[in-house]
């Protein structure tokens, strides 16, 4: 049996939405290099819709795959849906992660929430 599912390997080998958004509406960064994982998410938001999302990740295969999958799950979706995204949903969309790698999906969830917090701090009027 392989370490990771085919889905994880696909998102690891061909990560979606890699990069940076200049003038992003929200930026989130979680994790630390000491533990071996850092995720940074950039969001572009128009009319409460996440019109674009990019990420940068320093981390293992599942950290990169989790970031990639999380961006796919929220791209083009209303902010409310992104806020409701759970780490479980990320892991499930990847056809599962090994137990000791579940924290990677948690980081992905947190990175998105962190970026949305940043967005709300810049646009307090949007907060419901």
């Amino acid at each position: 049996m392989a370490l990771y599912s085919e889905k994880v390997m696909d998102h690891f080998r061909n990560p979606r939405n890699v990069g940076v958004i200049e003038n992003a509406d929200g930026i989130g960064e979680v994790g630390n290099a000491k533990c071996g994982d850092i995720m940074k998410m950039y969001l572009k938001i128009e009319n409460d819709i996440i019109t674009d999302v990019k990420f940068e990740t320093f981390g293992c295969g599942s950290a990169i795959a989790s970031s990639s999958m999380a961006t796919e799950l929220i791209k083009g979706k209303p902010v409310s849906e992104a806020l409701a995204l759970t780490n479980k949903a990320v892991a499930e969309a990847l056809d599962g992660l090994p137990d000791y790698k579940m924290h990677c999906s948690v980081l992905a969830e947190e990175a998105i929430k962190n970026a949305l917090d940043d967005y709300y701090s810049k646009h307090p009027e949007k907060k419901v």
Binding site: M9, F12, R13, C35, G36, D37, F58, G59, C60, G61, S62, A63, I64, Y100, K101
Partner: peptide, 27 residues
Amino acid sequence: GIEGESLLLLLDDRGIEASSGSACTSG
């Protein structure tokens, strides 16, 4: 600036089997 496990997986894709002292490879 990089993490060892992702390095190993990509080297494996290119036919090179190696190891790392990264935390992610030890659990």
